[in-house]
Each structure stands twice: as C-alpha cells, then as structure tokens.
Design a binder for these strands. Sequence first.
DNA 1: ATCGTTATTGCAAACGATTTGCAATTGGCG
DNA 2: CGCCAATTGCAAATCGTTTGCAATAACGAT
Lengths: 137, 137
Amino acid sequence: MPELTDRLRGKSRRITGQREAILGVLRHHPHPMSSKEVQSRLGGEDCDLATIYRSLHLLESIGMVKRFDLGDGVARYELMGTDDDGHHHHLICRQCAEVVEIEDCFPRKLEEEIARRNGYTKVTHRLEFFGLCPNCR
Amino acid sequence: MPELTDRLRGKSRRITGQREAILGVLRHHPHPMSSKEVQSRLGGEDCDLATIYRSLHLLESIGMVKRFDLGDGVARYELMGTDDDGHHHHLICRQCAEVVEIEDCFPRKLEEEIARRNGYTKVTHRLEFFGLCPNCR
DNA sequence: ATCGTTATTGCAAACGATTTGCAATTGGCG
DNA sequence: CGCCAATTGCAAATCGTTTGCAATAACGAT
C-alpha cells in the first residue's frame, strides 16, 4: 500500500483520504469494479461518486489501474501490478456475472500477421469471454 | 433486398418505410453503424432516433443484424448474411476510427480449453483489434 | 378499394452512466 | 502555522438509450 501512495506522490498529485480508500477497495477486490461497486464497498469512508470517477481516471492515467470493458455499458477497473502491463482477459458468466481472470491471450504471431496484412501499426486487442459458470449451468 | 423484407414478414411484423430505409442503409454500408450514423445516412427518409433504436433491436432479435461493441459506449450494428452466423472481428484505427473486417478468430481449441479449465459452458468471445491505420501513421 | 385491428411511429419525458462548473475544503511545502 | 493549488461535494449538464402514450400506418379480411 505504501508503494501505491508513493506512485501518486511526486506528480503534483495529493494523497487524499478518498484516494487511499479507493485504492484500498481495489486492492481487496482483484476483479474489475465499477465506480458504483467501489463506492458501495467504501464502508465508513463516504465518497462522492464524481470523486470516484475522477480518481479512477487519474489512477488510470498514471497507470495504476486498468480499465476493462465487459460489454455492459459500465466501465470497470482493476488495480495494476507494479511490474506487468496488466494485459489480460476475463471469462464472464452471462447469468451471474461472475468474473474469472484468464491468462491466455490472442496469439501474438497471428496479431502481427493481421497488423501487417492491413498495414496497421501498434495493434492491440480487447478480448473477453462469455459463458455459463459451473453454478449457473 | 426482397429476401430481407421476406425475413421480416410472417412474424406478425410489418414492413414499414423506415425499416426498409434502415435496412437499405445497412446494406450499403457493410461496417458497424451506430443508430445516429444510420439516421444521418437516411437521406430523404426522415426517421425518429427512437424508431431506429427500436428497429435495430427488432432486427437483432430476428437475427437480421448483429450488434458490435467497439469499445466506446456506442452500440453498432451490421447487416447479417443469410447464411453465416456473422461472427467476426474488427480492426479499428484509434485515430480515425476506420474499421476493417477481420476474418481471423480466436483459436477454437484454446477457447475450449479455457472453458473446460474453468468449468464454463457455451463460451464465446468478444474480440476487437485496435491500431493505427496506414493513413494515420 | 375500404375497414378494422394491431403493430409501429414520433415526440417528449425518463433513464443510467459519466462529466463538469463552481464554491468550499484540504493537503503539503515553506 | 499559513498559503495556494489540488481536490472534493453538490447539483446541473451530457450522452446514449429506453419508454409511455396518443396519433398513424400496415395489411388481412370484407
């Protein structure tokens, strides 16, 4: 956690109670979370939704959280590890919305091929899986 | 086009001028289109946005169009071929939003593996590529 | 061709997620 | 301890999308 706040300091950014609280919530919930979910988990700390939106944007711009788009029109965020680039995917239950982190990725070779064939550069991808979880089957 | 309207008929569904117009627009623009884009391409035919939303939903439910989520919070639709299931992906330019259809897909074997490993069934995926197109480089 | 039933439309209001303006508050360096 | 810029809360504004409702149009029956 101290490492976390350190990443904030020194960017003319301030370490506020709400930011710490938000980071705390994200740390204890290693899954994509929406602003509303973050707010409801804030417990004692009460924090305006607008502040949460602003904080998540800030944290994303610094690279401390990563934004995920799970297909419903809601932005979700995950805390990033210090080292990795946070690129990974999810398997989401269509029924109960349970989320499983997936380590597999789209084959790099094929992605490069696609980029080359179309003359595109700096190609990345967004990939999420949907299915029925063991419980909802 | 007649085949199109035929697919509508016989489901206690009516073939209205606006629906034909919308289908016409989609036919001449084989790329994901938002409701607003459809509306602006309607030319002479003026049609309420709500009607376009409703029509696209209807067409989607009948399987005549397929919905795509390109990552901005806007639903886009493509006309479906008569035969295929419409499953394919896109390569979108981060700069100018140009869209290229991609025929490659996530390896089936790997997807099955992912499903099995997590006990999920009926697994599908949403996959889109983002990069810089030749012009925007 | 006309009629009646019922789907469909336009319009405006309602919505949910997210953003923004602004005045009040607060973090942190001096 | 005090100052000033960064941050917050609050309310209003936006944006995409949905919905209620009365007016309108499709189309099978007459």
